[in-house]
Nucleic acid binder design. Structure first.
Length: 1048
RNA sequence: GGGCGGUUAGCUCAGUUGGCUAGAGCGCCACGUUGACAUCGUGGAGGUCGUUGGUUCAAGCCCAAUACCGCCCACCA
């Protein structure tokens, strides 16, 4: 640019913000400038956020957009406030999820399973996948404007995290807080791994309820020939090792009855009926079933046996409290290896546990002739065989809640396996204390209950996964045959290898089968010796492997490494400067579904490893749902891609939209629309059309494809974007800001910086400064308290309704006046500067762009002190304006001007006057108000095309007129030659009605002695004042009405 | 079964510790476009705050009951 006059610069500013090119350019400007970098700086206070690491399974969705927008808003705010702000980025290896995705692709594309590849090859393949998706995720975060310190980017499986994982594992192992045990696990037969309870969801499916008859072995006279048991999974009967009956059926029924009666006494009407029905059922059962159950109980006590059909095995009838006498036949078949409750029963009664399932979901040798059959066929076969033996008493149709794996979406089979656990009692307690003591504060507070309830169960955490993708458990194990071998092996390890020092530890796990005979019969070892090694590639590994130890194949649950995230990313276990300075982190921003899985575990691991909680505060943000209140997901087709929103509306609009929606409630609804790629029409998404591969646009009748497009024909169609109109608000806001700034900069031609003298400030200047200062304070406290929606709303209203609609409009006049221009320019540059700072954390791109343009036109600016503007807004200071500028008196004076203006505009609209039709008016008011309004006269002209012909207590009232009455001010618009009397009369009468009602309610209040006696004095006087004002206005109005009537 | 949210204008949502006439955006209606912005401007219509009862001088807000919608946890041989 040869001559950089402000006007020329401004002329080059397009009327619309070109966000696409600006986003790229500005992001590079920030990144290359090193503004995202955070380093230890003891002159500053640290502010740290660790990103909830997104899974490397795929792309970011709208939930991520929300989560990361909020984090970036806080980080940018704190950076501007002068904190050393660190936002630690990274991704999560997401064990099961990622391996599942890659395996599925391997199957689809090459028809191979992981076993065809082998562990090493598969892991290598997943690393490639990870690189690709990590890059994609990071580029998405960058496109959103996230100001992470990218040089620190971590991955939960990188060397730094691996080191932290091994140290943690070793520490817990050494303390005896990690152990191996045989447990029923949720077996995913598709992925062939155990999944935790948290990775299981229930789905209601249609199923059957089979009632099976087990013959009693040599029944005595009077005894039944069969015992009936019911099951939804008949094939599991092959692994039955007992049938149980309640030891005290009568007592149990009594208790149930007592409970029901207890509840009946406090029940609501609705419950009442259902309780009565239940009571009746218990009574029935007492009559019909009790004798039978007692008989079975006696048989069980006598040690009677049953014959397990098909397997021809004798199994005992036992007494246990698990079967509920009020349900079914009152008897339960016990399948210890395949049902969690039965497992507990088996432990109590030392029953044999027969696992009939292979890892791939087919039956194993324990299933006798059914071995090799997949579960489904086994079920059919078992039922058919039992039917042919007439051993099926009954089959019911029934809806069954079936557990499914969250990852593979296939049914879960309970399965007995060796697993590793973390003992939770102490650790949980420490994490509970951290929250109850206030060391960690959860916002909104209601979520502390979720957190505490879950932890208080103190259930041990199963941490092993039969996967290849993850941190392999650093344990080497060896079975020993007897106590001598055990002793000599332990001796060997401790003496010659000096294990049990700082870097390796031993655990001896005795065989879970206490019965020696059974143990030998089952071929189980005497004990297993486990050695955990702390450091990677420790030479000790080779040495113990030479002794016959084998490394545990399992990997750790992903959440194990995630739990270390706040300190592992800062260098723990080394006591780095970073760790010392940035830990504990300041706040964690996440969604509520991982409060237990992640937040709680981070707290307890942080306490265990660092002795300090990992963060001071946790903010839980809402979930985004579609217009039907359903969660968004790609599999439903209602997911909005944040990149589509960025492409269509810009990153700032995405961010503003997100912040604007972040209220205190649990969920946010976002109606979803397709956008026709041909005509840009917006088509409301319904449950039906969101499942279609192609949609015909109702506006232009052309077809477009959706994410479901599979056929070549559909794929050849252009794809319709999935968007929400809720981002339009934000886009429009950005546009408004852009154009107001464009106007401002255009009018900074000839700008000369100089301090603005107090005497030069007009009412509107004091007003905007008061508002700016107030808004700055409001926004700061709102953001401090995570009230993102309120902060955004305040900014939106201020920027649009006050800065644009009033201040800029008013300045138009002064900018056009040579005498006033210089001061007006200084004020305009200054207030825009202030506004941009306030908006920057939420909408960083557009504000930075305007900042740069503003600095071209007005490089030095200020109010009382002139200074060079900071070169980039991202590094500008947040607090500039003195709170002393806040002035309620000025604001209320300005409100009078606004009211008069609004009144004039309303009359114009009512009289249907074009914007250029001039009108004249007079104002009747006190001298004080006269002085106030006189200073604003020019603006009535410029903003309402209205000329004032007189103002004061004794002005001559023009006739005919239109009147606006307000407190202490009456405005009369001269309507000679213009008047639509009927319209004006209608308006006046409506106003009269409103005031009459107001007078009536206020009078009613004041006539009520209990109100005047009991309400606070302030409230009473407010009502008195309101009444007085209303009455005065009513008087003026009555006069105006009669005048108008007489004119007619 | 236990817990947690929600129900305010046609739609999506605000509404601080109870206190003047319950607000916004979108949509709708009317008018308006040679210089910041039609992604705009000005004005307007539109609400018995889910229902019932209670506390209070005063309830969208507090209490109790109830209906519906949603989420989480547990359990169902």
């Amino acid at each position: 640019m040869a001559s950089n006059t402000a006007h020329e610069i401004a002329r080059q500013i397009p009327t619309r913000f070109d966000f696409e090119s600006a986003q790229k350019r500005l992001y590079e400007l920030w990144q290359n400038g090193g503004y995202f970098r955070a380093t230890v700086n003891h002159d500053k206070q640290p502010f740290t956020i660790v990103i909830p690491p997104p899974n490397v399974t795929g792309a970011l969705h709208l939930g991520h957009a929300l989560n990361n927008t909020l984090q970036d808003i806080l980080v940018r705010l704190r950076r501007m406030q002068g904190f050393e702000a660190l936002w630690m980025p990274g991704t999560d290896h997401a064990g099961i999820a990622t391996q599942a995705v890659v395996e599925r692709r391997l199957k689809e594309e090459e028809g191979k399973t992981r076993h065809d590849l082998g562990r090493e090859k598969l892991v290598e393949l997943i690393w490639q996948w990870k690189d690709q998706y990590e890059a994609r995720i990071i580029s998405q975060l960058k496109r959103m404007g996230c100001s992470c310190d990218w040089e620190r980017t971590r991955f939960t499986l990188d060397d730094m995290c691996a080191r932290a994982v091994r140290h943690t594992f070793f520490d817990l192992f050494e303390k005896g807080l990690i152990y191996r045990g045989k447990r029923l696990v949720n077996w995913d037969t598709y992925l062939q791994t155990a999944v935790s309870d948290d990775e299981v969801f229930n789905e209601t499916v249609k199923g059957h309820f089979w009632h099976l008859k087990y013959p009693v072995v040599s029944p005595q006279p009077g005894e039944p020939e069969f015992v009936v048991v019911a099951t939804t999974r008949p094939e599991t009967m092959l692994g039955d090792t007992a049938v149980a009956v309640h030891p005290e059926p009568a007592k149990a029924l009594d208790k149930i009855q007592a409970d029901l009666e207890d509840r009946l006494s406090t029940a609501s009407k609705n419950e009442h009926a259902s309780l009565l029905i239940q009571l009746e059922a218990v009574n029935q059962r007492r009559i019909v079933m009790l004798p039978q159950l007692e008989q079975l109980r006696d048989m069980a006590r006598a040690g009677r046996m049953l014959k397990l059909p098909l397997m021809e095995r004798e199994i005992p009838l036992i007494c246990d409290e698990w079967p509920k006498p009020e349900l079914g036949s009152g008897c339960v078949k016990i399948t210890p290896a395949h049902d969690p409750n039965d497992y507990e029963v088996a432990l109590r009664h030392q029953l044999e546990m027969i696992n009939i399932l292979s890892p791939d979901g087919s039956l194993n040798v324990e299933a006798g002739s059914y071995a090799g059959l997949p579960l489904k066929s086994a079920r059919k076969q078992v039922v058919a065989d039992l039917e042919s033996l007439d051993l099926v008493a009954q089959v019911e149709e029934r809806e069954i809640e079936l557990p499914h794996s969250d990852r593979s979406k296939t049914p879960i089979e309970p399965f007995l396996a060796n697993q590793w656990f973390v003992k939770m009692d102490q650790l949980s307690q420490s994490a509970m204390d951290a929250v109850t003591d206030g060391a960690v504060r959860i916002v909104p507070q209601r979520y502390t209950k979720t957190y505490l309830d879950w932890l208080s169960e103190k259930r041990d955490w199963p941490v092993s996964r039969q996967l290849w993708w993850g941190h392999q458990i650093p344990v080497w194990s060896k079975a020993v045959a007897d106590t001598q071998e055990q002793a000599s092996m332990v001796k060997e390890l401790t003496q010659s290898l000096k294990i049990n020092g700082t870097s390796a530890a031993i655990q001896v796990e005795p065989c879970e089968e206490a019965n020696e005979q059974k143990r030998v019969k089952l071929g189980l070892p005497w004990a297993t010796i486990h050695v955990a090694i702390c450091n990677q590639d420790d030479p000790l590994e080779k040495l113990i492997e030479a002794l016959g130890f084998e490394r545990v194949e399992d990997v750790l649950d992903t959440w194990f490494s995630s739990a270390l995230w706040p300190h592992s990313t800062l260098g723990w276990p080394s006591l780095t400067e970073d760790l010392e300075y940035f830990y504990p982190t300041s706040t964690l921003i996440t969604s509520r579904d991982i409060i237990t899985l992640w937040v709680a575990r981070m707290v307890l691991m942080g306490l265990n490893n660092c002795g300090q909680t990992p963060f001071d505060e946790v903010y839980i943000h809402p979930k985004i749902l579609d217009g039907y209140g359903e969660t968004m997901s790609k599999s439903k087709g209602n997911g909005i891609d944040p990149l589509d929103v960025i492409d269509k509306f810009g990153a700032d609009a995405l961010r503003f939209g997100m912040a604007y929606l972040t209220t205190e409630t649990q969920d946010v609804r976002m109606p979803v629309q397709f956008e026709c790629p041909h005509c840009e029409a917006s088509i409301e998404q319904t449950r039906k059309n969101r499942e279609l591969p192609r949609i015909s646009c109702p506006k232009c009748s052309q077809m477009f494809a959706t994410q479901w497009a599979k056929s070549d024909e559909d794929l050849s169609l252009p794809r319709g974007l999935v968007l929400s109109e809720r981002f339009e608000v934000a886009r429009n806001f950005c546009n408004k800001l852009w154009n107001a700034s464009r106007f401002s900069i255009m009018h900074l031609e000839g700008f000369k910086p100089a301090p603005v003298l107090d005497s030069n400030l007009r009412l509107e200047d004091r007003w905007i400064l008061s508002r700016l200062s107030t808004v700055q304070q409001l926004v700061t406290t709102d953001l401090d308290k995570y009230r993102f929606a309120e902060a955004s709303r305040t900014l939106y209203d201020f920027a649009w309704d006050e800065f644009c609609s009033f201040y800029v409009e008013i300045l138009k006049d002064r900018l056009g006046d040579e005498k006033q221009r210089a001061v007006a320019q200084r004020l305009l540059a200054f207030s825009l500067d202030q506004l941009l700072r306030l908006l920057h954390p939420v909408i960083p791109f557009i504000t930075e762009e305007i900042w740069q343009l503003l600095s071209h036109a007005a490089p030095q600016r200020g109010l009382d002190q002139i200074a060079e503007a900071e070169p980039v807004l991202i590094a500008a200071h947040w607090n500039v304006l003195d709170p002393d500028w806040q002035n309620p008196e000025i604001e209320s004076q300005f409100a009078k001007f606004q009211n008069v203006l609004a009144g004039l505009r309303e009359i114009r609209a009512r009289q249907n006057l074009g914007p250029k039709t001039p009108v004249e008016f007079v104002v009747r008011c006190s001298d004080q108000n006269r002085r106030l309004l006189e200073s604003m006269m020019a603006y009535f002209e410029s903003m309402a095309c209205a000329t004032c012909k007189g103002v004061g207590p004794d002005v001559a009232i023009p006739m005919p007129n239109a009147t606006i009455t307000m407190s202490e001010i009456d405005v009369f618009v001269n309507l000679t030659g213009l008047i639509d009397i009927a319209a004006e009369m209608k308006r006046l009468e409506k106003e009269q009605q409103r005031l009459t009602n107001l007078v009536a309610t206020n009078q009613g209040k004041l006539n009520n002695p209990s109100f005047t006696d009991r309400a606070p004095e302030q409230v009473v006087s407010q009502v008195r004042q309101s009444l007085q004002e209303a009455e005065e206005q009513l008087t003026s109005l009555a006069r105006a009405i009669s005048d108008l009537a007489s004119f007619e």
